[in-house]
Design a protein around this nucleic acid. Sequence first.
DNA 1: TAATCTCATTGACCGGGATCAACCCCTTCC
DNA 2: GGAAGGGGTTGATCCCGGTCAATGAGATTA
Lengths: 248, 248
Amino acid sequence: MRAQPDRPMNERCSTCPIRERAICTYCSCDELSLLERIKSYRSYEPGQEIVAAGEETTILGSVVEGVVALSKTMVDGRRQMVGLMFPSDFIGRPMRATAPYDAVAVTPVRLCVFERRRFETLLLETPSIEKRLLEMMLDELDAARDWMLLLGRKSAREKIATFLLILARRAAIAEGASPQDGFSFTLPISREAMGEYLGLTIETVSRQFTALRKDGVIELTDSRTVQVPDFLALLDAAGEDADGGPLA
Amino acid sequence: MRAQPDRPMNERCSTCPIRERAICTYCSCDELSLLERIKSYRSYEPGQEIVAAGEETTILGSVVEGVVALSKTMVDGRRQMVGLMFPSDFIGRPMRATAPYDAVAVTPVRLCVFERRRFETLLLETPSIEKRLLEMMLDELDAARDWMLLLGRKSAREKIATFLLILARRAAIAEGASPQDGFSFTLPISREAMGEYLGLTIETVSRQFTALRKDGVIELTDSRTVQVPDFLALLDAAGEDADGGPLA
DNA sequence: TAATCTCATTGACCGGGATCAACCCCTTCC
DNA sequence: GGAAGGGGTTGATCCCGGTCAATGAGATTA
């Protein structure tokens, strides 16, 4: 069931939707043509495994379309999601042969991938890629530490609100909308996956959605479509500081 | 109360205790002499703040001696430690002006520091440092994600056991001891700090210590000195897989 | 149209860890 | 010596979120 290369390998980087945010952000034209020669694309269906924890990884690369969940599993089956990767995010662990977590497509996913060994020599030869990768990993580390605060100290209600807040900000930035106007977005993952991400059970997730709806913090047109009538109320429910304005 | 430079700035990198594990791991002799010219040292007392969240950071660098806690604080005072830094670990956030967390010395600490702007140009000019920093940040990210599993899914008992396991491994490696023989180590932080690290209250930490002691998993000579008579029992209490042997 | 399946919601109940409080031990300082 | 203070332990109680279970709402298939 491993995904196969699904297109000829000559798509142009210059028209790529993630050109300005992925590891190639700082690449020159020459470097882009090098990438075009060695990259390939893979597609995955929702639920399909991209890499398995402990398994040797042969490829790594960027999410072009779709959402990927990174999860860890304990021997008794308890699972914790440790990352949710959106377009332009980098998947895989350079400088290590085996993956420390599972990566699973949660929506239809398209990756721009490199063969692992090839990528590691590329890193050594291309400072612009190494610099961008370091930048992105530092951002990931910041995000992971924010998530540690969420998992260790926030209540179930705050956890849900924080997750919705992150999605709301993404949506606001993507649409160029001001977060003051009530706007809506689609949840990329199921209640179960949210539970795995937030360290909660599916039942608690559902109950907190209901509670936030009853309190007027959110509105649900259907179970996957959220409207935020009052951004500040959501910010408050998330237990976040309002410093720096609602988009901070 | 800001720490002052506490020695002439000409200590030799070649005799530095963290020479082979810190960001300078891959540096050539020439690069080391450059570092010797621009580095300086700072000392901190236990409890002293090294950087404050949100504050502009002017320095960053490596822990030479001692232990540093990185923590995040919510507006209502809830705190979560997001990292515990030992000698050779790197403190500070390159490529960003303000710190996303507090850094506080928990023991007497000595840092080898660089002025931030100077370090950032150094990074651009010195691929051996950039490569090592990327490696270290990837390791930090892995550790942060392991911690997310702990915070989101482990019981209080498992949390304490996991923390002791990490310290036991550190001690075993440092002493070159085999973990099978019962050996002992000192807890670098208080019960309160452990609670902050593990997402627990001080009372729960204390209770779980008592429980692990009563179950024979650990022995306490005094409240800061732990003996591990049976490493596998500790591994089991931590909810970890025993794959790859006890030091895995 | 019914059967089945998946995803989500809701209810009843329980338990692990938080909270509140007392107490112990050790060190430091009058 | 006694007081004060910090760190740690233990007990009693409470409550948030987990567990178990039933039901609902759509989508797919027979």
